[in-house]
């Protein structure tokens, strides 16, 4: 019954996230509230790792499956993007390379400056 109680704990955070999305007049997804709250609860010890670990591991492992259905939804948007597929692709590729370079360089520079400690 460990999995049931773990799943219920995660569902509880989901419900709070969904409630906050409705209460707070900001367009922030329910899952973002949930991640922050569960992370905070783990940090302060309100929730122990063994109260969520296995069910959470299962849920994160099935995430890629859950994206198939929304991705199929591109069929409905095809008319709007069909003329711009190449520029979209180039923009996506260029921004990814730039993000990769900037974030990597920034960290490398900071670590070198601070003496570079790993553990």
């Amino acid at each position: 019954m460990k999995y049931l109680s773990q799943f219920l704990m995660i569902l509880g955070f989901s419900l709070v996230g969904e409630a906050l999305q409705r209460l707070v007049p900001l367009p922030i997804p329910a899952s973002v509230y949930g991640i922050v709250l569960l992370f905070a609860a783990l940090c302060v010890g309100l929730v122990k790792l063994e109260q969520v670990k296995e069910a959470g591991g299962f849920l994160t492992s099935i995430l890629p499956i859950l994206f198939v259905s929304p991705a199929v939804g591109i069929l409905e948007n095809w008319a709007l993007i069909r003329g711009a597929v190449l520029p979209i692709f180039l923009l996506v590729a260029a921004s990814t390379a730039l993000t990769f370079g900037i974030s990597g360089r920034a960290v490398q520079w900071l670590l070198k400056k601070g003496g570079g400690k790993h553990d």
Partner: peptide, 27 residues
């Protein structure tokens, strides 16, 4: 019937995040 798992599954990302946070404190 499958998609409702999206929110709980995303929230579960907080668990590996917490574990790595402990490990990567120095950096």
């Amino acid at each position: 019937k499958l998609s409702w798992l999206m929110t709980p599954a995303t929230i579960s990302l907080a668990i590996p995040m917490y574990e790595q946070f402990q490990m990567l404190r120095k950096n």
